[in-house]
Nucleic acid binder design. Structure first.
Length: 265
DNA sequence: ATGCCTAATGCAATTAGA
């Protein structure tokens, strides 16, 4: 089973790229971020033509998240991140697909720092940590996937010294992310690729992709039940080289099939 | 410190992204 995440940066403007990649990669589940489309402008029909059902939380102009599943209807469990009824930004959606619970998230960028946007980011992470505490402890496999807008370590950015003042690399954000992982989440890229240089985002500016001046900010985290089934992970970085592409590349994992009930000793 | 580029909105220029 293949589960992926992709910050599309405009799901309608990106539709040719998205459909091309879906046909090529054929993930069973895809978390999308930055739809940049209101609820009624989600390209449901074009995705259904490729066999994907979807749940989504749109928003005009910015944000927006979706979970797609090939040949299965995602069973939605949340369409916003609990903990703040005043939060109107569409950044979290959660659904069960084939026995796996999937949280798709678009964590706030937080720039400029300091300021209200950075405060919102930190508050959002705390709410995510609260939700994740419940999810990590479930017996069922759980995946948290999306654009976290957090560079976890020096190894995840081409020039760490240039990002010291940025909200993506802020000590407070990284410390909070480390606390999230300490709940018992496995970072799928690090689990498979060790300390290798792996990026998921390259700025549109200054030929960043050609120079491989990238960041690793899109992550897939697995609770223990999911981590026990992890067989592979990767970034489809070539997609970043396509025409009219997103500044992010798709990230994916593969999971072995669930053990049959009773097969465990 | 800012622009470099890109998308959405909506038709010019602004807002936001990271």
């Amino acid at each position: 089973m293949k589960i992926a995440t992709y910050n599309a940066n405009g799901v309608n403007g990106r539709l040719p790229v998205l459909l091309r990649w879906l046909e090529e990669a054929r993930p069973d589940v895809l978390c999308l971020q930055e739809l940049k489309a209101p609820q009624d402008k989600f390209p449901k029909t074009a995705l259904a033509d490729l066999g994907y059902y979807a749940v989504w939380q749109g928003q005009a102009r910015w944000n927006g998240v979706a979970i797609l599943a090939r040949g299965h209807r995602p069973e939605e469990t949340q369409r916003s991140l609990p903990g703040d009824p005043e939060d109107v930004q569409s950044r979290y959606i959660e659904a069960a697909v084939r026995g796996i619970l999937i949280g798709g998230l678009y964590l706030p960028n937080g720039n400029p720092k300091p300021g209200p946007k950075f405060d919102y980011k930190l508050g959002w992470i705390e709410r995510l940590i609260d939700r994740a505490a419940t999810l990590v402890a479930l017996d069922a496999p759980v995946i948290l996937a999306g654009d976290f807008n957090i560079i976890p370590t020096d190894a995840d950015v081409y020039k760490p010294e240039r990002w010291l003042k940025d909200a993506l690399f802020a000590p407070e954000a990284r410390a909070a992310y480390a606390r999230l992982l300490d709940q018992g989440w496995t970072d799928a890229i690090r689990a498979i690729h060790g300390g290798d240089t792996v990026y998921t985002f390259w700025d549109y500016f200054r030929d960043a992709y050609a120079r491989n001046a990238g960041l690793r900010i899109d992550h897939i985290l697995l609770n223990p039940a999911a981590a026990a089934r992890l067989t592979g992970s990767g970034v489809d970085r070539h997609v970043r080289g396509w025409e009219k592409t997103s500044d992010h590349a798709p990230v994916w994992i593969t999971l072995s099939d669930a053990k049959r009930r009773g097969a465990e000793r």
